[in-house]
Write a protein that binds this DNA or RNA. Structure first.
Lengths: 161, 161
DNA sequence: CGGTCTAGTTGTATAGTACAACTTGCCAGT
DNA sequence: ACTGGCAAGTTGTACTATACAACTAGACCG
C-alpha cells in the first residue's frame, strides 16, 4: 500500500496520521453501515432500501432487465426475480416482453412507481438536508467528492462492497 | 434548514452548489449502505457485521449486559439474546452472573473472542488501507473528520440511523 | 435439427430480525 | 412480610431478504 509506515507497528496499531485517519474512516463507515442496515427495512412503508435502489436504477436507466439489476447490485437473479415480482404486485413497475427476444422482460416504472420513488427520494433528501444543514458549503462539496471517490474504488473492501 | 436556496426549486432539483453536494452525499451514502448490506453477512466466516459490532462493543466497554447492547444498537432484546447465544456457543464470549442482581448477565469476551475480533478488525483494516492507499494524507484526515461529524449528527436520517 | 447458452421462475434453506408471551428476580408501598 | 409492578432474558412464532440449485422457455450456432 502507498501509505508510509514509519516504525514498527505493533499488531495493527496506527503509527502515522494517515493510519489514524484510515482507522477512523473504517470505524465510522462501520457505524454508518450498521445504522443503515438497521433502518434499511423501514425507510418507507412501501419501499425497502433494496427496492428503492432497484426503482432508482430503473428510473436512471429508463428500463432494464432483471438480469442487469442482479449483475449491477451483485444480487442473485432469484432474489431480483422475487423483488421484481413484489414491485409488480404493488403496481410500481411493469414488465414488457422484449419483441426481439422473448426470454427478456424489460422492466419499467409505472406512474405510481415514479410517484413513490419521488416521494421516497424527497423524504430522504430532506433527511440528509436536515442532517447537513449546518455544514459549510465547502465542506459539503469536499465530503461529497470524497464519498464519490471512495465508492468509485474497485470494490475490494469487505466493508464497502 | 440552513442551506440557502436561491430561486425556486422545481420538485427537489438542487439549485445551489450546496444542494448538489447534499444530493451527491445522499446518493453515495445510499450506495455505500447497499454495498455494506450486501457484504454484511459474509465479511468473515465466523462473524457477521452485527456480531462483529457486538464483540467490538464488548471489548470497548470491557463487558456489558445484553440489554445495553440492545439499547445501544436499537435491536430487540430477543435478537441480542440469540446473537449472544450464538457467540457463546462459538466460544467467543462468556456470561457472568452479576452477584448484585441475579437477573443480569454481564457479557465478556473470551480469549478466543478477542483473537477473532482482532483478526477481523485487522482484515477490515487491511481492506480499508488497500482501498485508501493512494489518497493523500490530508484528504484522509479530512474525510475521516467529515464521517465522524456526519455520524455524530442526531440520528434523524432514514439512511443513516 | 440438436446442443448449448441465456433469462427468468420456483423450491428449499438459512440468517437476522421483531413482537408477544413467558420466567425469574428485584424492589417499593402498604 | 406480602403483593403488585418493573426489569432482564428466553423462547415461540412469523416475516423478509437472501443464496443456491433445479427447472422451463426461448435463442442461437453448427
Amino acid at each position: 500500500m502507498g501509505v508510509a509506515v514509519e516504525g514498527a507497528a505493533v499488531e495493527g496499531v496506527p503509527v502515522t496520521t494517515a493510519e489514524t485517519a484510515v482507522e477512523t474512516i473504517q470505524r465510522e463507515m462501520t457505524i454508518f453501515a450498521r445504522r443503515a442496515r438497521a433502518s434499511a427495512g423501514r425507510m418507507h412503508p412501501e419501499l425497502s432500501l433494496v427496492s428503492y435502489t432497484l426503482l432508482g436504477h430503473l428510473e436512471e436507466s429508463g428500463g432494464c432487465r432483471a438480469t442487469d439489476l442482479a449483475a449491477h447490485y451483485a444480487l442473485d437473479k432469484s432474489t431480483v426475480s422475487r423483488q421484481v415480482a413484489a414491485l409488480e404486485r404493488a403496481g410500481l413497475i411493469e414488465r414488457r416482453l422484449d419483441p426481439e427476444d422473448h426470454r427478456v422482460q424489460v422492466l419499467h416504472l409505472t406512474g405510481a412507481g415514479q410517484e413513490i420513488l419521488a416521494q421516497v427520494t424527497e423524504s430522504r433528501r430532506a433527511a440528509f438536508r436536515e442532517r447537513l444543514a449546518d455544514w459549510p458549503e465547502a465542506d459539503l462539496v469536499r465530503f461529497a467528492g470524497y464519498l464519490e471517490r471512495y465508492n468509485a474504488g474497485t470494490s475490494a473492501g469487505s466493508a464497502g462492497d
